[in-house]
Amino acid sequence: MAHDHAHNAPPSETAMRVKALETLLTEKGLLDPAAIDALVETYETKIGPRNGAKVVARAWTDPDYKARLLEDGSAAIAELGFSGVQGEDMIVVENTDEVHNMVVCTLCSCYPWPTLGLPPIWFKSAPYRARSVIDPRGVLAEFGVELSDDVEIRVWDSNAELRYLVLPQRPAGTDELSEDELAALVTRDSMIGTALAEAPAG
Protein backbone atom coordinates (compact mmCIF):
# COMPACT_ATOMS: atom_id res chain seq x y z
CA MET A 1 0.00 0.00 0.00
CA ALA A 2 1.30 3.41 -0.89
CA HIS A 3 -0.27 5.00 2.15
CA ASP A 4 -2.49 3.90 4.95
CA HIS A 5 -5.36 6.37 5.26
CA ALA A 6 -8.73 6.01 3.61
CA HIS A 7 -9.66 8.72 1.14
CA ASN A 8 -13.31 8.05 1.79
CA ALA A 9 -13.14 8.54 5.57
CA PRO A 10 -16.25 10.25 6.98
CA PRO A 11 -15.93 13.99 7.66
CA SER A 12 -15.10 15.10 11.17
CA GLU A 13 -17.84 15.63 13.74
CA THR A 14 -17.29 19.40 13.54
CA ALA A 15 -17.57 19.44 9.75
CA MET A 16 -20.79 17.42 9.92
CA ARG A 17 -22.26 19.73 12.56
CA VAL A 18 -21.43 22.80 10.48
CA LYS A 19 -22.98 21.18 7.41
CA ALA A 20 -26.13 20.32 9.37
CA LEU A 21 -26.46 23.88 10.67
CA GLU A 22 -25.92 25.38 7.22
CA THR A 23 -28.51 23.00 5.73
CA LEU A 24 -31.07 23.83 8.42
CA LEU A 25 -30.56 27.60 8.04
CA THR A 26 -30.87 27.27 4.27
CA GLU A 27 -34.02 25.11 4.44
CA LYS A 28 -35.64 27.58 6.84
CA GLY A 29 -34.96 30.39 4.38
CA LEU A 30 -32.59 32.26 6.71
CA LEU A 31 -29.44 31.81 4.65
CA ASP A 32 -28.29 31.84 1.05
CA PRO A 33 -25.21 29.56 1.19
CA ALA A 34 -23.38 31.99 -1.10
CA ALA A 35 -23.41 34.44 1.82
CA ILE A 36 -21.19 32.03 3.76
CA ASP A 37 -18.73 32.00 0.85
CA ALA A 38 -18.75 35.82 0.83
CA LEU A 39 -18.04 35.90 4.58
CA VAL A 40 -15.21 33.38 4.34
CA GLU A 41 -13.67 35.27 1.42
CA THR A 42 -13.90 38.56 3.34
CA TYR A 43 -11.90 37.22 6.27
CA GLU A 44 -9.48 35.26 4.09
CA THR A 45 -8.54 38.07 1.74
CA LYS A 46 -9.74 41.48 2.99
CA ILE A 47 -9.67 41.69 6.78
CA GLY A 48 -6.60 40.67 8.78
CA PRO A 49 -3.72 41.86 10.95
CA ARG A 50 -2.30 44.16 8.24
CA ASN A 51 -5.20 46.47 9.20
CA GLY A 52 -4.04 46.61 12.81
CA ALA A 53 -0.44 47.11 11.69
CA LYS A 54 -1.50 50.26 9.82
CA VAL A 55 -3.16 51.56 12.98
CA VAL A 56 0.00 50.92 15.02
CA ALA A 57 2.32 52.50 12.44
CA ARG A 58 0.11 55.58 12.29
CA ALA A 59 0.19 55.85 16.09
CA TRP A 60 3.99 55.56 16.05
CA THR A 61 4.34 58.41 13.56
CA ASP A 62 1.50 60.75 14.51
CA PRO A 63 1.31 61.76 18.22
CA ASP A 64 -2.11 63.36 17.79
CA TYR A 65 -3.47 60.16 16.26
CA LYS A 66 -1.95 58.12 19.07
CA ALA A 67 -3.66 60.35 21.64
CA ARG A 68 -7.02 59.88 19.89
CA LEU A 69 -6.40 56.13 19.62
CA LEU A 70 -5.81 55.73 23.35
CA GLU A 71 -8.73 58.03 24.19
CA ASP A 72 -11.34 56.48 21.86
CA GLY A 73 -10.05 53.36 20.10
CA SER A 74 -13.16 52.67 18.02
CA ALA A 75 -13.29 56.17 16.54
CA ALA A 76 -9.56 56.42 15.81
CA ILE A 77 -9.47 52.98 14.19
CA ALA A 78 -12.51 53.91 12.09
CA GLU A 79 -10.56 56.95 10.82
CA LEU A 80 -8.41 54.45 8.89
CA GLY A 81 -11.51 52.68 7.57
CA PHE A 82 -11.59 49.72 9.94
CA SER A 83 -14.78 49.03 11.85
CA GLY A 84 -17.56 46.52 12.20
CA VAL A 85 -18.24 43.06 13.57
CA GLN A 86 -16.27 42.28 16.74
CA GLY A 87 -14.65 45.71 16.72
CA GLU A 88 -17.63 47.85 17.61
CA ASP A 89 -16.19 48.92 20.97
CA MET A 90 -12.40 48.97 20.93
CA ILE A 91 -9.89 49.71 23.67
CA VAL A 92 -6.22 50.23 22.75
CA VAL A 93 -3.65 49.60 25.48
CA GLU A 94 -0.10 50.91 25.17
CA ASN A 95 3.09 49.03 25.99
CA THR A 96 5.78 51.13 27.64
CA ASP A 97 9.08 50.53 29.44
CA GLU A 98 7.02 50.04 32.62
CA VAL A 99 3.95 48.12 31.38
CA HIS A 100 3.42 45.18 29.03
CA ASN A 101 -0.13 44.31 27.97
CA MET A 102 -1.46 41.00 26.66
CA VAL A 103 -4.98 39.96 25.68
CA VAL A 104 -6.95 36.79 26.29
CA CYS A 105 -10.59 35.79 26.31
CA THR A 106 -10.87 33.25 29.10
CA LEU A 107 -14.52 32.49 28.33
CA CYS A 108 -14.23 31.81 24.60
CA SER A 109 -12.25 33.50 21.82
CA CYS A 110 -13.36 37.16 21.63
CA TYR A 111 -10.96 39.01 19.36
CA PRO A 112 -10.88 42.33 17.45
CA TRP A 113 -11.80 41.15 13.94
CA PRO A 114 -11.61 44.47 11.99
CA THR A 115 -8.00 45.04 13.02
CA LEU A 116 -6.66 41.49 13.47
CA GLY A 117 -8.97 39.25 11.41
CA LEU A 118 -10.01 35.90 12.85
CA PRO A 119 -8.16 34.55 15.90
CA PRO A 120 -5.35 32.02 15.58
CA ILE A 121 -6.04 28.49 16.83
CA TRP A 122 -3.83 28.91 19.91
CA PHE A 123 -5.78 31.99 21.01
CA LYS A 124 -8.91 29.81 21.17
CA SER A 125 -7.17 26.91 22.92
CA ALA A 126 -8.01 26.05 26.53
CA PRO A 127 -4.34 26.12 27.65
CA TYR A 128 -3.76 29.69 26.44
CA ARG A 129 -7.05 30.87 27.92
CA ALA A 130 -6.43 29.19 31.27
CA ARG A 131 -2.74 29.95 31.68
CA SER A 132 -2.56 33.56 30.46
CA VAL A 133 -4.30 34.91 33.53
CA ILE A 134 -2.46 32.83 36.15
CA ASP A 135 1.01 32.61 34.57
CA PRO A 136 1.42 35.35 31.97
CA ARG A 137 5.20 35.40 32.37
CA GLY A 138 5.38 31.67 31.69
CA VAL A 139 3.17 31.99 28.60
CA LEU A 140 5.19 34.95 27.32
CA ALA A 141 8.43 33.01 27.81
CA GLU A 142 7.05 30.22 25.63
CA PHE A 143 6.41 32.85 22.95
CA GLY A 144 10.02 33.97 23.35
CA VAL A 145 9.29 37.11 25.34
CA GLU A 146 11.23 37.43 28.60
CA LEU A 147 10.41 40.53 30.62
CA SER A 148 12.04 41.76 33.80
CA ASP A 149 9.97 41.67 36.98
CA ASP A 150 10.22 45.47 36.94
CA VAL A 151 7.81 45.47 34.00
CA GLU A 152 4.19 45.22 35.14
CA ILE A 153 2.21 42.69 33.13
CA ARG A 154 -1.42 43.56 32.53
CA VAL A 155 -3.57 40.75 31.19
CA TRP A 156 -6.81 41.96 29.58
CA ASP A 157 -9.62 39.39 29.73
CA SER A 158 -12.03 40.40 26.93
CA ASN A 159 -14.90 38.52 28.53
CA ALA A 160 -17.57 41.15 27.86
CA GLU A 161 -18.27 43.41 24.85
CA LEU A 162 -15.03 45.42 24.68
CA ARG A 163 -12.29 44.26 22.32
CA TYR A 164 -8.61 44.98 22.88
CA LEU A 165 -5.67 45.89 20.67
CA VAL A 166 -2.16 46.18 22.10
CA LEU A 167 -0.09 49.12 20.87
CA PRO A 168 3.43 47.63 20.93
CA GLN A 169 6.51 49.74 21.59
CA ARG A 170 8.21 51.18 18.54
CA PRO A 171 11.50 49.32 18.06
CA ALA A 172 14.77 51.20 18.44
CA GLY A 173 16.60 52.26 15.30
CA THR A 174 13.47 52.99 13.27
CA ASP A 175 13.59 56.78 13.17
CA GLU A 176 14.24 56.84 9.43
CA LEU A 177 11.55 54.33 8.44
CA SER A 178 8.39 55.31 6.60
CA GLU A 179 4.95 54.49 7.94
CA ASP A 180 4.66 51.55 5.52
CA GLU A 181 8.08 50.22 6.55
CA LEU A 182 7.09 50.52 10.19
CA ALA A 183 3.84 48.65 9.57
CA ALA A 184 5.87 45.73 8.23
CA LEU A 185 7.46 45.35 11.69
CA VAL A 186 4.09 44.99 13.40
CA THR A 187 3.14 41.33 13.73
CA ARG A 188 -0.25 39.93 14.67
CA ASP A 189 1.14 38.56 17.92
CA SER A 190 2.65 41.92 18.88
CA MET A 191 -0.88 43.34 18.80
CA ILE A 192 -2.18 40.49 21.00
CA GLY A 193 0.75 41.10 23.33
CA THR A 194 2.44 37.70 22.98
CA ALA A 195 5.32 39.22 21.01
CA LEU A 196 7.18 42.48 20.62
CA ALA A 197 7.31 44.39 17.35
CA GLU A 198 10.14 43.13 15.16
CA ALA A 199 13.50 44.83 14.93
CA PRO A 200 14.33 46.44 11.59
CA ALA A 201 16.47 44.42 9.18
CA GLY A 202 20.18 45.10 9.01
Binding site: G138, E152, I153, V155, W156
Partner: peptide
Protein backbone atom coordinates in the same frame (compact mmCIF):
# COMPACT_ATOMS: atom_id res chain seq x y z
CA UNK B 1 3.49 35.90 39.02
CA UNK B 2 5.53 38.86 40.23
CA UNK B 3 4.15 42.26 39.25
CA UNK B 4 1.18 40.98 37.21
CA UNK B 5 -2.51 41.81 37.26
CA UNK B 6 -5.72 41.13 35.35
CA UNK B 7 -8.10 43.72 33.94
CA UNK B 8 -11.56 42.37 33.21
Amino acid sequence: NANACVYI
